[in-house]
Design a binder for these strands. Structure first.
Ligand code: FES
Ligand code: FES
Lengths: 151, 151
DNA sequence: GAAATTTCCGATTTGACATATAGGAATACT
DNA sequence: AGTATTCCTATATGTCAAATCGGAAATTTC
């Protein structure tokens, strides 16, 4: 699983929306300013996220985007699967797999990559947008504490 | 970390060499026949593996390739890093990283991806070529047992 | 020492895909 | 009507994966 810019932008945008959950609409421009993402590219991404049901939107003046569900109900793994495809590092390990290795049934490499794939999914399918926000907050606080020693 | 064909071929070739460790030279043609890999492509790959010290070679009649070290001393993680680059799913998490997220220092996504990266490395930096061979053997045996019920 | 075999090495090709950008249509508010 | 905002499709651009080509260098064999 390689996470592309598109996937990274999608996650960053969703985290941004999570931080503003239940605080009204959030417009593309707002997210662009906050996250430094190419506007037209983000437009495409939000559209995909909308079609997949992660976010909803409203057009016209005062419109914008907002999460369809609470941040603690959105798994990072699902976002990545939508934007960047399977979590598995090798196609032969993912569901929509093509047989590539001539001896797949007894392929040790396949077996190892299955382990990797499961370990990755185990993490990404348990981390929610809310968790990401909390991590960010925790890191910022711990950093602030450290700063205090130098005041 | 996305594993490319090149990386997959590299691993398959090394496993093939591991299975013939201390049994003399193994020529490109032999590996091609056994593993169904494009010959000229495999040539490039073996050359890279040789320059990195994983294999050694001998030219001319009766020449070929062989592992520089015993199969239980070669880690899958090192092979993948050489051929396909960092194990991390995002560049900002790898050593040779470029700052991409504007708030990297307190980025929750970064933190999660670091976990993923570490989990992946934990597996791939403990699996050797010998382990892969054993897994293959184990799978084949278990499969053979199953077959017996149908005889 | 000529011929056959095998690895070594750089250049080139091809197609796919990542990363956008452009331009306008549709919708909603004032 | 006019403005703001999302929606949608098409197009451009560059990079890289995946291979192919052609010959040079080394080694053995005869
Ligand atoms: S089955 Fe995927 S590498 Fe063998
Ligand atoms: S630091 Fe990599 S996504 Fe934020």
């Amino acid at each position: 699983m390689k996470i592309t810019r598109k996937g990274e932008y999608a996650m960053r945008a969703l985290v941004d929306l999570a931080l503003h959950y239940k605080k009204g609409m959030r417009q593309i421009q707002d997210i662009v300013r906050e996250e430094d993402i190419p506007e037209k590219f983000l437009e495409q991404i939000l559209l995909a996220l909308k079609n997949a049901g992660f976010v909803e939107s409203k057009r016209g003046v005062g419109g914008g985007y907002f999460l369809s569900n609470p941040p603690d109900k959105i798994l990072l793994g699902d976002v990545i699967r939508l934007i960047d495809g399977p979590l598995a590092p090798l196609d032969c390990v993912s569901k929509t797999k093509h047989v590539k290795c001539p001896k797949e049934i007894t392929c040790g490499i396949h077996s190892v990559m299955l382990d990797v794939s499961n370990a990755t999914a185990e993490i990404l399918d348990h981390v929610t947008l809310a968790d990401v926000c909390n991590r960010t907050k925790g890191m910022a606080e711990r950093r602030a504490e450290h700063q205090m020693y130098y005041i």
